[in-house]
Design a protein around this nucleic acid. Sequence first.
DNA 1: TTGTAAGCGTTATCAC
DNA 2: GTGATAACGCTTACAA
Lengths: 340, 340
Amino acid sequence: MKIKGTSPTMKDVAREAGVALGTVSKVMNNIPVGEEYRLKVEAAAKKLGYRVNSYAKGLKTNHTGIVALIIPSVRHPFFGILTDHLCRVLMKRGYRTLLATTESDMEMENKCIRLVQQHKVEGIIALTYNPDIEIDEDIPFVSIDRFYTNRVPCVASDNFGGGQLAAAKLSELGAEKLLFLRIGSSVIGEPDKREAGFKAWCQNHKIPHHVIHLNDEDGFKPFYDFLENHIIEGKPEYDGIFCSTDQLAVNILRVLEQLGLKVPEDVQIIGFDGLLNYIDYKPYCSSIVQPVEKIAETAVEILFNEDRSKLPALTCLPVSYRPGGTTGDRDMEKKKNGEV
Amino acid sequence: MKIKGTSPTMKDVAREAGVALGTVSKVMNNIPVGEEYRLKVEAAAKKLGYRVNSYAKGLKTNHTGIVALIIPSVRHPFFGILTDHLCRVLMKRGYRTLLATTESDMEMENKCIRLVQQHKVEGIIALTYNPDIEIDEDIPFVSIDRFYTNRVPCVASDNFGGGQLAAAKLSELGAEKLLFLRIGSSVIGEPDKREAGFKAWCQNHKIPHHVIHLNDEDGFKPFYDFLENHIIEGKPEYDGIFCSTDQLAVNILRVLEQLGLKVPEDVQIIGFDGLLNYIDYKPYCSSIVQPVEKIAETAVEILFNEDRSKLPALTCLPVSYRPGGTTGDRDMEKKKNGEV
DNA sequence: TTGTAAGCGTTATCAC
DNA sequence: GTGATAACGCTTACAA
């Protein structure tokens, strides 16, 4: 498939306007030029439907106006929202977004990076889980949620702080023994620190706590068994649960139901992400909210930072707590959501 | 911000390999060349970390390998999933996706179209609600969900058929008086036909029915009032509701709760879209399912169709019905979802 | 088969 | 201020 080569060029415009090629170029780039010339050129350009060929321009200037975004998918709401913000922020700065979805496949991730580099993008923002990613040193690169090396700036939520905050909140709301839960294959990125923050807070405050790593095969069984074995007089021994994601939290909610336990009366739960249900824009559960928009803005800002020699290796953005019905602070929640 | 001009060119590779420039070009494009030359060139290219500059290439060939996607956002799950599929299908065909989000702002839509055309994309796939969109005749264009003219091929779900299917299902499941509900500003795209299909089926089958158009200001009040005035002996007169989207359906569910009505015992509800909750991959409600993946595949196929003179102006893809707990067919639903 | 050279549409450097 | 002209990196006849 070829684009019909009929689009007018600067030469055409110059001929039409009866001026020199260079003059047209100047008009197009807002470089001062005699008023009468400018008008002639503008008229000719409009008449011919002229548009600058950004490939020719890019060839000359090495300025393409495109930034690549490499991300597992845009299906998952977190990625979708992040992509949305990034695309908007980039557009505002005069950049277009070249989107590449990888499904977290490492081979795909490297392939995409290679491809977009061919397209002479002016920067790459990537959310990958690839430990040995092939980065070209002389193209600006910002990683999200994944710290590689000091040479590649990384932007992430304050996952450690979020873990601490979750533990603190659960404790503040009356939970006495805390549980941390995560599921899935070993997380190698920043999100790992959620657990670390949680543990640290519990240890510092001498709060009894326990950690369970679920895996995809066994599912929630280990959790179910653990909780069942720790029920005293119909009440669960562990009455505050911090889940590494909202998704896990909501699934845990179902398990607790099966165990005949009430949330938040018997057990309080806090998740992580803070996404809202797209139907009614209500939280899925009480959660540590990631500042998605701020992440997007910061990533772009760092990408375009003038002085790339002195960039922060890791930028952690503050998270916040939002009640969402799975903790004891229901009034606060209703007030915040402005419910009837 | 400029890309460091250090990347090696074909000239560098040619010098390194001790061959002529043209030979390098041939190797890069898999044009037969003496084996020893090929090896020399490949070695030199690898050594220098050479990558073809697709801007120079594009300037020559007018083949950029980029397709633009213009879409309101990727935040909404329907758009996110659609974008995901499109990006994947395009990648499989060797194309990259230039993403532009418009928030359905008409000015933005036209601006984006202008911008991506500058980038010499080889095709545009757009989901817009802009009645007077500025399309360049000589760049392939496919519209999703919005029919413009016979010159612009449009891909959409069979919205009319979906409307019929919803009415038929509700009737089949025992509903005797049907209601159609939609909300928001006048829909100008294909989705309009959901209502038309619904009405047509009801008329053909002599089923009593009613239509309510809600608007954003009054919210669900008119619906609430209508239903309240049509309750006979504690049971709603209208016992089958077709909502133009799942989102509306779920919100209506809440309203019915307030009215003390049971779903699906007192009222059955069918929505439209068929999205799954990202948390547990379960349907939000019984729904007419849009074939999102098929839409993506078809759009790309049409975009790259060899003979663009004989393209279908409108391609309607078949929808299907899926129970989701808001209709009387619960057994079927459980079986389908493979629940415990 | 390999090498050479013209030119794709722009920008930028100069004389004018 | 304006207008030739030489790159930019690559493809592609065409000549060797």
